[in-house]
Amino acid sequence: MTLTDVDLTHLRRTVELAREALDDGDEPYGSVLVDAAGQVRFEDRNRVKDGDETRHPEFEIARWSASHLTLHERAASTVYTSGEHCPMCAAAHAWVGLGRIVYVASAQQGADWRAEWGIPAGPVAVLPITVVAPGIPVEGPVPELVDEVRELQRRRFGA
Rank of each mutant, 00 (worst) to 15 (best):
Q108G: 07
Q108C: 00
Q108N: 08
Q109Y: 09
Q109R: 11
Q109F: 07
G110T: 09
G110D: 10
G110I: 09
G110M: 12
G110K: 11
G110A: 12
A111K: 09
A111V: 07
A111G: 10
D112L: 09
R114G: 04
R114H: 06
R114M: 13
R114F: 08
R114C: 10
R114N: 06
A115N: 06
A115F: 08
A115K: 15
A115Q: 15
E116P: 05
E116I: 01
W117R: 12
G118W: 12
I119N: 01
I119A: 04
I119D: 02
P120F: 06
P120C: 04
P120M: 03
P120N: 02
A121S: 15
G122L: 11
G122W: 06
G122Q: 12
P123I: 02
P123N: 05
P123V: 03
P123M: 00
P123W: 04
V124Q: 11
V124T: 14
V124E: 14
A125L: 10
A125M: 08
A125E: 15
A125D: 15
V126R: 00
V126N: 02
V126C: 09
L127Y: 06
L127E: 14
L127V: 06
L127N: 07
P128H: 09
P128C: 05
P128G: 08
I129V: 15
T130F: 05
T130G: 13
T130Q: 15
V131M: 13
V131S: 14
V131R: 15
V131N: 11
V132T: 13
V132G: 01
V132C: 03
A133H: 01
A133P: 09
A133Y: 03
A133Q: 03
P134N: 04
P134M: 03
G135I: 03
G135K: 03
G135R: 06
I136S: 03
I136W: 00
P137R: 12
P137K: 09
P137G: 03
P137Q: 12
P137V: 10
P137C: 00
V138G: 01
V138Q: 01
E139F: 12
E139Y: 11
G140N: 00
G140C: 03
G140E: 01
P141R: 01
P141M: 05
V142M: 04
V142L: 05
V142I: 12
V142R: 04
V142H: 01
V142E: 00
P143K: 01
P143S: 07
P143A: 13
P143N: 02
P143D: 08
P143R: 06
P143E: 07
P143M: 05
E144N: 04
L145V: 04
L145C: 06
V146M: 10
V146A: 06
D147T: 12
D147R: 14
D147W: 14
D147S: 15
D147Y: 13
E148A: 14
E148F: 07
E148R: 14
V149D: 00
V149I: 13
V149Y: 01
V149G: 00
V149W: 02
R150N: 07
E151L: 13
E151N: 11
E151G: 06
L152P: 07
L152D: 06
L152E: 04
L152T: 02
Q153P: 01
Q153E: 12
Q153R: 15
Q153T: 10
Q153M: 14
R154S: 09
R155A: 13
R155N: 08
R156G: 03
R156V: 00
F157M: 08
G158P: 08
G158M: 05
G158C: 06
